[in-house]
Simulated assay, not measured.
Amino acid sequence: MGTVQIHYEIPDVLLNNKDYVSSKDKDSVYTFFSTVTCSNADTYEWAQKRRGSDSAFMARLPTDSLAPCGLVNIALFTDSYLFERDLGASWEAVTIDESRVALPADDESFNKVTQDNGTIYLQNSRASWLTPDILEHWKVWQRTPPGQTVRNLWGYVEGGLELGTYRINFTENSAIWEEWGAPEKRLIITGNPSWLGNPGAMQAVAGCMFFLGGLEFVLFFAFLVMIFGWQSVPTGAGDPVDIEQMEAEPTARVPEVRPPREPVHSVRV
């Protein structure tokens, strides 16, 4: 049946401005081509001012330090879900794999973050408020959206979902996004996409690209044949000359060119 993907989506949020994108902890992210700072987002008090109404999130933070700090981390999406299938007399929990939602390259991108006996550490041995159950979601969240809609992968259901009735329980459902101006939060369930992306639109685009690429290759090969064909013709040969025909034809007479006569002047004495 394939794999089912579960995404969360938050529309109309301003998470792509420079002040937000650069507000990260330098001890947690790779910063070769950019600089990051935690100004005005580096203490528990700052987190309290920005997200104090979210008691579940604030309970994660220690009061003495904030690691990782920054606006990106204070805004971390922490909602969680429980899928259950109706069996008639009871409900059966659906196993959701949240362990591999980050990109494979993130292991290198976030190599400053390590785990030891259930505790997450940043560079310079800074103990973090992150926990192993949200670490993969934290990695996904670090890739800020280019537009005003957030859509991130939250988990997989291996083997797909059988036909039936399901329900979704929100084990954590933060209302902070409404305070921040988001009109709604969405949960999107999709099939596992093909290697080209969306099975419909992306395959059509890919087919057009393959056709244009093949056409360019044919034209390139035709130009090569024409170039080598022209180079094989001997230069300076010209058309053959029929000597007998030239002798049979009368020679064209060239009009005689006489020098101009000098004027004669008469003088009477």
Rank of each mutant, 00 (worst) to 15 (best):
I96F: 00
D97G: 00
R100P: 00
V101K: 03
A102G: 04
A102H: 03
L103C: 06
P104V: 11
P104H: 08
A105R: 10
A105T: 12
D107G: 14
F110L: 11
N111A: 12
Q115L: 12
D116I: 01
N117Y: 01
G118T: 02
G118D: 06
G118M: 02
G118Y: 01
T119N: 13
T119G: 03
Y121R: 05
L122C: 08
Q123S: 11
S125W: 00
S125N: 14
R126P: 02
A127F: 01
S128D: 04
S128Y: 01
W129R: 03
L130M: 12
D133L: 00
L135N: 07
E136I: 00
H137Y: 08
W138E: 06
W138T: 06
K139V: 04
K139C: 03
V140F: 05
W141E: 05
T144F: 05
P145V: 02
P145H: 03
P146M: 08
G147K: 08
Q148M: 07
T149Q: 10
T149D: 04
V150A: 04
V150I: 12
N152T: 02
L153N: 06
G155W: 00
V157D: 01
G159T: 03
G160V: 01
E162A: 15
E162I: 07
L163A: 15
G164C: 08
G164D: 08
G164Q: 06
T165G: 10
Y166H: 09
Y166P: 04
R167Q: 14
I168E: 06
F170W: 10
F170G: 07
F170N: 10
T171M: 05
T171S: 08
E172N: 12
N173D: 12
S174F: 01
A175S: 13
I176S: 08
W177I: 01
E178I: 05
E178R: 15
W180E: 00
W180T: 00
W180M: 04
G181Y: 09
G181F: 05
E184N: 14
R186K: 15
R186I: 05
L187A: 07
I189V: 15
T190F: 04
T190H: 02
T190A: 04
N192V: 06
N192G: 11
S194T: 12
S194F: 03
L196V: 10
N198R: 10
N198W: 08
P199R: 11
G200N: 14
A201P: 05
M202E: 15
M202I: 00
Q203I: 07
A204Q: 15
A204H: 13
V205T: 14
A206K: 07
G207I: 04
C208W: 13
C208P: 04
M209R: 13
F210C: 10
F210L: 15
F211M: 12
F211K: 09
L212C: 10
G213D: 06
G213R: 05
G213C: 09
G214D: 10
L215H: 02
E216P: 00
F217S: 12
L219Q: 09
